[in-house]
Design a protein around this nucleic acid. Structure first.
Length: 586
RNA sequence: GGCCCAAUAGCUCAGUUGGUUAGAGCGCCAGCCUGUCACGCUGGAGGUCGAGGGUUCGAGCCCCUUUUGGGUCGCCA
């Protein structure tokens, strides 16, 4: 028997045809003298019918068929009578009268039913991932993922980009995330790293003159996992020569618009909004603001410069600030929930949270007695507070803590009060990131993006005296509060790159040992270049409406970075270790 | 590394203040059933209550440790 049709593709137009379908048994309904099976393939379901009249042999065999058996069934497509139509099934107006069929493969009773309404725990799903992936919703997600990459390849191809592979076994450059290491058998005691991204190689390809490059590239980072983070993930990696920020941004906007048009049939308005990193932090307390709702941060510092309320004044005097959000209509929040919010902001290192409830009897706050009448009035004016509102204030000596805590609080309150329209797609570019940030841990400046990001021309002179103030030619593309991609114009000048390494605290020897090959390459004529990389997994999450990165990856890892299906990672034999000259020290 | 949540039948869950033989739905097995479509009816099998220790006359339930899964902070150039 040769398959003639896919199950879900049969229609009323096929009535009368003799067809052969193949697939898995979704469900069996045995009425005694009549057996209905639903047969499933990736296109959908079709009901196939067995009875003694149609074929005694087939009917007898069908008695023994169970769920998830793999069948080939041959028979005639028949229109169902009016009263037997199943409106819940795509193919519900037809069925196949089976004259002959073959069990291609038997199946044990699966640990869970292969159906979307089944609410099976993720651990079980991951252990039997091949069964989980039979479910239509999972098939749809992976199909969408495939469509996205196809659109991307199409678009980039038409715009002159070339897909070039870069190596997986590369030099470890201990800057950034923790590397996955691979021991070298040939060179005892030495290790490769798996790439955190193809960053340096794509820059070298620009120096090689390929002009426009892309790759759907696996990236590996040995860091802890999150709902949107896997150790092994995929980037849409792009690099272009002879471009500035606007060039990169505009071609990417067109690509993203094409993806949204073809996947969701949504026409995005171009160009996307652009705001500076500073503005994003000031207004939203985040470098990836969710623009689907307001509740913007307001700076109250000027009100409290001479305040008698120590907490606020102290924050301001020490270079910090006092900022707040207004949660409209939340004044009647119970005390217990306010206490929870205090705990919530503490997870972001805020020391406390001041609230003002705009109750019917006027403003109520736990710090009322510390506030002067004029201060309160100014706060309420600035916050445009009305009866029924809840003002939440955070002060700290460290502005980043104020931003971070209040930014997360804004998101949390947006969620709690249902202010987020799930059908909206709010894009923006966040630009003018700081080039460097000071690391308390390492007591030095570290690159905010990566050490190859170019500073803005007008800020280069500050590199020596005021490195924290230098802005970068960097841009992130943000959608609904998620960073879906980021990139920059790169340094293409040996001297500037050396300068950058110097600011990062590398000695010449360090820089030479780690990145000497790149510095060398710059010597032989490097074009100005820049690019971007998207998180394909996160993009797919948004386009499929999932909030869990494991759902958009066929075979993902658990929070402990394990594969529950294959049981990786696992121990290896002594022989394998010996060959690699590795001794395990537990 | 820290904090929080969860773990009881194949799956999803209930299980009262610590008290008789741990339940339900789905699934599974058997029988009946010719228009079902989450078929129906009848009957049946199925449990190391994640693991280890403790308290107690008595532990699914309380305490400690631990494992696994999830969320999160740190971390993620």
């Amino acid at each position: 028997m040769k398959r003639t049709h896919m199950c879900g593709e049969l229609t009323i137009n096929d009535v009368g045809k003799n067809v052969v379908v193949m697939g898995w048994v979704q469900r069996r309904r045995d009425l005694g003298g009549l057996i209905f099976l639903e047969l499933r393939d990736r296109t959908g379901l079709i009901q196939i019918v067995f009875s003694e009249q149609l074929s005694k042999e087939a009917f007898d065999k069908a008695q023994h068929v169970r769920n998830e058996y793999v069948l080939a069934a041959s028979g005639k497509v028949v229109k169902r009578s009016e009263e037997n139509v199943n409106p819940n099934l795509e193919t519900g107006n037809i069925e196949i009268y089976v004259s002959e069929f073959k069990i291609l493969s038997k199946a044990e009773t699966p640990p869970f039913m292969v159906e979307d309404r089944n609410n099976v725990s993720e651990a079980i799903r991951l252990k039997y991932r091949y069964l989980d992936l039979r479910r239509p919703s999972m098939q749809k997600i992976l199909l969408t993922r495939y469509k996205i990459t196809r659109i991307v390849r199409d678009f980039l191809d038409k715009n002159g980009f070339i897909d070039i592979e870069t190596p997986l076994l590369i030099k470890s450059t201990p800057e950034g995330a923790r590397d996955y290491l691979v021991p070298s058998r040939v060179q005892p005691g030495k290790f490769f790293a798996l790439p955190q991204s193809p960053q340096i190689f794509k820059q070298l390809l620009m120096i090689s003159g390929f002009d426009r490059y892309y790759q759907i590239a696996k990236c590996l980072r040995d860091e802890d996992l999150r709902a949107d983070r896997q150790p092994e993930f995929t980037q849409i990696d792009i690099e272009m020569s002879f471009v500035d920020e606007d060039d990169v941004i505009s071609i990417n906007e067109r690509m993203v618009a094409k993806i949204f048009k073809e996947i969701l049939n949504i026409d995005l308005e171009l160009p996307f909004k652009r705001i500076s990193w500073q503005e994003a932090m000031d207004r939203f307390g985040s470098d990836k603001p969710d623009l689907r709702f307001g509740m913007e941060l307001k700076n109250l510092s000027s009100i409290f410069v001479d305040s008698e309320f120590k907490v606020f004044k102290d924050a301001i005097d020490n270079g910090g600030s006092v900022r707040a959000i207004n949660v409209k209509g939340a004044a009647s929040i119970p005390r217990r929930q306010l206490d929870e919010l205090v705990e919530y902001v503490k997870t972001y290192k805020a020391k406390g949270l001041v609230w003002i409830q705009m109750s019917d009897d006027g403003p109520k706050s736990q710090i009322s007695k510390f506030l002067k009448e004029a201060e309160l009035t100014q706060v309420l004016n600035t916050m445009e507070a009305e009866k029924g509102d809840l003002i939440l204030i955070i002060a700290d000596r460290n502005n980043m803590i104020v931003y971070d805590a209040l930014g997360h609080l804004r998101l949390e309150m947006g969620k709690r009060y249902n202010l987020i329209d799930e059908n909206k797609y709010e894009f923006l570019w966040v630009v003018d990131f700081p080039l460097l940030e000071y690391s308390e841990e390492e007591k030095r400046y570290v690159a905010m993006h990566h050490p190859f990001t170019a500073p803005k021309d007008e800020d280069i002179e500050m590199l020596d005296k005021n490195p924290g103030q230098v802005r970068a030619k960097a841009y992130d593309i943000v959608l609904n509060g998620m960073e879906i991609g980021g990139g920059s114009i790169r340094i293409h000048d040996t001297e500037l790159q050396k300068k950058m390494f110097e600011v990062l605290g590398f000695t010449d020897e360090d820089a030479e040992a780690r990145f000497g090959f790149l510095l060398n390459a710059f010597k032989y004529g490097a074009p100005p270049h820049g690019g971007i990389a998207y998180g394909l997994d996160r993009l797919t999450m948004i386009l499929t409406g999932t909030d869990n990165i494991r759902d958009v990856i066929a075979f993902p890892k658990t929070q402990n970075a394990c594969d529950l299906m294959s049981d990786a990672p696992s121990e290896v034999s002594k022989e394998q270790l010996d060959e690699l000259h590795i001794k395990v020290n537990l």
